[in-house]
Structure formats: C-alpha cells, structure tokens
Nucleic acid binder design. Structure first.
Lengths: 233, 233
DNA sequence: ACTGAAATTTAGGTAAGCATAACTTTCGGA
DNA sequence: TCCGAAAGTTATGCTTACCTAAATTTCAGT
C-alpha cells in the first residue's frame, strides 16, 4: 500500500506548471509569471517560488523578471503529460460515455495518476487515435505532435468554406454551448459575414439543413479551422 | 486547470490511512500504531501525528497508547475508497487487459483521483459486478459490503470440498505464482492432507485433470474459500 | 509490586506548495 | 532622462506529511 508517488516521478503541481508553461510558450515567447499565476489560479509569489525549484531541477530556464521557458527535459515532460491528458479525454468520451464537455476536469486529475502502461492500453483500446474529441492532436509516444495547419475562425475571410478541426476552450459552459449548436470538430461551414471591430461572425453549415449561427468574436478565437476553399468558387 | 483537489475532499494520504485502519480493524480490535506504520511503510511517529489530525477531523477515535478505530464518518469514507479501488481493479482487469496480479498498484493511485462519476460509469460498463477479480466483494454505492462467509484455507479440514472465493494478498509475485497454478477465484478443490505445526497443505482440483498442489501455510492463510461439502460424503 | 522491553508519543526538523505584505525591477510616456 | 505603474521577487508564515531522537506509557514476567 501507500507508495503514492506519481508514475512520472514529478509532482502533480510540477506537471501542471510544465503544461501551463508549454501552452503559454507556444507563441515562441517566454511564459510570464503573472500569466502562469492566472492560468493556475495561484498567487504570483507562489509561482516565483515554484519557478525557482523547477529551475534548480533543470526543467525550466528562468530569467528573473523576463519569463520562463522549458528546457529540453521540461519540454519532453510537458508533452508527456499532454499526451496522457488527451488520451484520457478521448478514452473517457469514447469508451465511458462522457459528454464532450465534461472530460477535461476528470482528465485533469487522472493525468497525474495514470501510468504509461494504462495510457498505452487505452491507446490500444481506442485504435491509436490521432486526435482527441475536441480535435486537438494527441502527441505520439516518442513526444512528437502533429500541428495541423489550422487557423482561428477570426482569421478567416467571408466566403471561405472551412472544416472545424479543434476547439481550444476549457470552459465547460462554452463547450456545452458549442455542442448545442452542433459546432463539433469535423463539421463544415461557410463564413457568411463578419462585423468589424471584433464583432460577431455569421456562419452557415454545409448540407441540406444549412443552419446559420452567429458566433461572438471571443468564442470564434477558440475555433480552429482547416480552410477547404472558397464557397463562391 | 490546476484545481487538483481530490474528488473525495480527503487527501490521498488520509484515504490510505482510513483504508488501512479499516482493514486492521476487521477483527474487531482497534488498529495499532505500529501495524499502520508497517502497512503504509511509514515511521511510527508519523502515524501518531497523522492519527492526531484524523482524530481532530472526526474520522477516527484515537485512544493514545491503545489504538485507533474508525468513526461512523471515517468508516463510510473508508468503504467509499475501497469501492473505488475494487471497481478500478475490476475495470482494469476486465476492460483493459491488465493481468490479474498487476491491477493493484495502478488502482492504488487512481483511487485517489477518480471521481464518483467515473467509478459509476465503470460500474455500468462492467454490468454492476459484485466481486472483483481477486474475489473480494465490491461495496455497494450506499456503503454496504456483503461479507461472504468464507474461511481461510488454513481453517479447512482434510476431506472438505471447497471453492476458492477470494485471494487477499497484495504481493504481485505471490499473485503471479497462484495464477500460474490456476488458483484463481471460482475454482474448486479438495483438501487432501495437511502437515501439522503450520505445515503445507495438499489440495487436488475437482474435475478431469485433478491436478495436485502443495500450498505453504503462509500462502494458504490468504486463500479464502467457501465450503461446498465433504468430498467423501 | 516492580522492572525492563516494546510500543507509543512528544519534541524538533525538513520539504513542497501555497499565502500576504513589502521591496525591486522593468519599461512606456512625458 | 526620469518617473510611476505594472510586473516580479523576496521575506515571512502557514499546512500537510514525512523524518529521527528522546521521552513516556504499557504490560508481561518475576
């Protein structure tokens, strides 16, 4: 009994920090202390303290007052956690009937407790999936992640025909709302019109029904799409 | 993200203590500090400290120098953890192809992270099982546990015909060994002979093959059986 | 009843992770 | 260039949960 050490050898808290620093660093710039603090709902001084420890263990490169980046080791560990998280989400949604919008919270806890063996067994049971239910890519076991060339809906011009690939939102309410509109990965639609000044975007589903929806700018920023072509063409 | 609090509201450590105190108190006597310490691989003074905290939160009744028992609340929490543990073990073995002997370690970690919703979804997927792969009963959602009237193999007389119900051992090597002898819950055998002074016990499987095995006393203590009747009768 | 070994608790210390309050650094704008 | 707000860090303290060493309590055997 006991031996409640994490399979990864890292603490849950450390894994959460690595994931967050990874995500905030995706644009190429170092992650800021305050952004990490906000993302994890932790006070900034606590983050400073943690960054010091992470830096000492060689997981991150911290330049005081100038943000933090992952080392090669830290990057690898972050990808590993993200793989676990996304496999768990996929498994929960596919095999255990979880709603599309409620898997995140459960996976957030299990990702720290699940061994690699469990994750690989789930991958096998799922038939080696490439994408998870929100459309995000699942990193491979050896730490590579295909980054599909998709673009936020806010960057797509009127008249374009697109396929929704990925919804990068963690708010269950918003996910539920999108789900209620049938805005799930895989669906195709056309951008009908756009209001200026970060205004809402009008879309129409491809197909017989051809329902129209108005999407607020904020929400549209988290809808990533593949461009299929111009509807007029 | 973050919000890595346990679904139960109790810390993993607390849950481990409650499980252990439950198990050690099954014989009706209070659990001793040193027994808890040994079971959890923790130094006795650490256990004393933890018992104080558990006592203050009302989960246990601790009489210093005289052992500890679970309060009603603590008992309920312990059963809850055991249910989670056994459902997880059953699910891992049944649905994800885990070996009979390797589920324990994985369940030991997941039991602290799995929400009630996950556990109930697993129960549904399994078709509401009554027993887990080692034969131990799974407590019901409302905290009741059928205690089958089974007896350790060491208490069974020569000539009795029994069915193996439950293997209460956590050592993977021993479990593997039993597995290799086909000594799994559900199998029936007859007690052929017994050596005195805690000596080994000779058994023969019921059926065409009728293989015989010699079981050491220590091992036999963890094999719990239902008595089916007298083979000679 | 007493005594000594075993069991247990108390005393004091460490590390991880959080917090708040106070200080320091950075950087844009006058 | 300098100044002040914002961002970040240091200082300090808390809780959980572990440790070792030193006291204390219990209890069996005389």
């Amino acid at each position: 009994m006991s031996l409640t050490a994490q399979p990864s050898g890292l603490t849950p808290s450390t894994e959460d920090y690595l994931k967050t620093i990874y995500r905030l660093g995706l644009d190429g710039s170092p992650a800021q202390t305050s952004a990490i603090a906000e993302s994890l709902s932790i006070a900034p001084p606590s983050v400073s303290g943690m960054l010091k420890r992470l830096s000492e263990t060689g997981l991150v490169e911290h330049v005081p007052y100038h943000g933090v980046t992952l080392t090669r080791v830290g990057h690898h560990a972050a990808i590993h956690v993200i793989r676990r998280h996304r496999v768990l989400e996929t498994y929960l949604a596919t095999k255990l009937g979880y709603d599309w919008d409620s898997v995140h919270e459960e996976a957030e806890r299990l990702e720290h407790a699940a061994s690699d063996e469990l994750i690989e067994r789930m991958v096998m049971a799922l038939g080696n999936p490439q994408y998870h239910p929100h459309g995000a890519p699942i990193p491979t076991k050896d730490g590579r992640m295909e980054t599909p060339e998709c673009v936020p809906l806010t960057d797509i011009a009127v008249g374009e025909l697109v396929e929704l690939r990925m919804v990068s939102d963690k708010n269950p309410e918003r996910l539920r709302y999108l789900s209620s509109l049938e805005l799930k990965p895989g669906i195709s639609f056309e951008v009908m019109s756009r209001q200026p000044f970060r205004g809402p975007i009008n879309i129409r589903f491809v197909g017989s029904a051809g329902q129209e929806h108005v999407i607020g700018y904020e929400l549209a920023r988290s809808l990533f799409c593949d461009v299929l072509g111009n509807a007029a063409g």
